[in-house]
Amino acid sequence: MDDATARTQLETMLTELDRSITVLRGDPATPADRSQADGGSLLTETDRARAMLEAATRQRTAVLAALKRLDTGDYGRCVDCAQPVPEGRLAARPEAARCVQCQSARERRR
């Protein structure tokens, strides 16, 4: 993937993530007449929104790091082994920082 295409995709992702994060951070309107039975579903909705916010924030960080790699000329190289990240991986995940092998090793260590 060429740098211009990558930058366009990453900037589009960043805009969408920022929009999602803004929505997720908004205070949900909680009607005063909610019954005790609704309390459990409200907690579940809050937990789900919090998890989505955390995931969006992590992805936003990855997108910003990818844009920085574009600026420094390191985009498309694995941050661990410096080998090229496969084109297919970058097409699917433009923010990918690692080749498949290094990403798999990282996930196994967790």
Rank of each mutant, 00 (worst) to 15 (best):
D80W: 04
G40M: 01
L17E: 13
M52F: 14
G40C: 09
D74G: 06
A91S: 07
R60P: 07
T46K: 12
E107Y: 00
G73A: 07
Q103L: 09
A4N: 12
L43F: 01
A92M: 03
V63P: 00
D27G: 04
E16H: 12
P86R: 08
D71G: 12
E87F: 02
E16L: 15
G73D: 00
G39D: 07
D74S: 09
C78L: 01
P86S: 06
E16V: 14
T57Q: 09
R98S: 05
L17Y: 10
G26T: 12
C78W: 02
T8V: 11
A97I: 04
R34M: 11
R89N: 09
R98A: 05
P31D: 11
C81E: 11
L64S: 12
D47F: 11
Q101Y: 04
P94Q: 02
D80V: 02
Q83W: 08
E107G: 02
D3M: 13
A66Y: 10
K68H: 14
E45F: 01
L70H: 11
Q59S: 04
V79N: 13
T72S: 10
G76C: 05
T30K: 01
V63T: 01
G26P: 07
A6E: 03
R50C: 06
S20Q: 14
A65L: 11
A37R: 15
Q9I: 03
L90R: 07
D2I: 11
R106C: 01
D2A: 06
Q59Y: 03
A96S: 02
E107C: 09
L64I: 15
C102A: 13
E11F: 06
R108M: 08
R60V: 01
A55T: 08
R110A: 12
R89S: 07
T22F: 00
C99V: 13
T22N: 04
D47E: 15
R34Q: 10
R25I: 01
E95K: 02
L90E: 15
A66K: 04
A65F: 12
T30H: 12
V23D: 12
L64M: 15
T46L: 10
D27L: 01
G26N: 08
L17G: 09
P28C: 04
D3Y: 14
A4G: 05
C78M: 02
M13Q: 13
T22S: 11
R60N: 02
V85S: 03
D18M: 06
D47P: 07
L42F: 05
A51P: 07
A49I: 08
L17R: 08
T12G: 10
T8I: 09
Q59H: 13
A82S: 14
R106K: 07
A6S: 02
P84D: 13
A92S: 09
E107Q: 07
R108V: 07
A82Y: 03
L53S: 14
T5H: 13
Q101F: 00
V100T: 11
T44F: 11
A96I: 00
S35G: 10
M13D: 11
R109M: 05
T30R: 09
V100R: 02
P28N: 05
S35L: 10
L24P: 10
D71T: 14
R7Y: 00
L43W: 03
R48E: 15
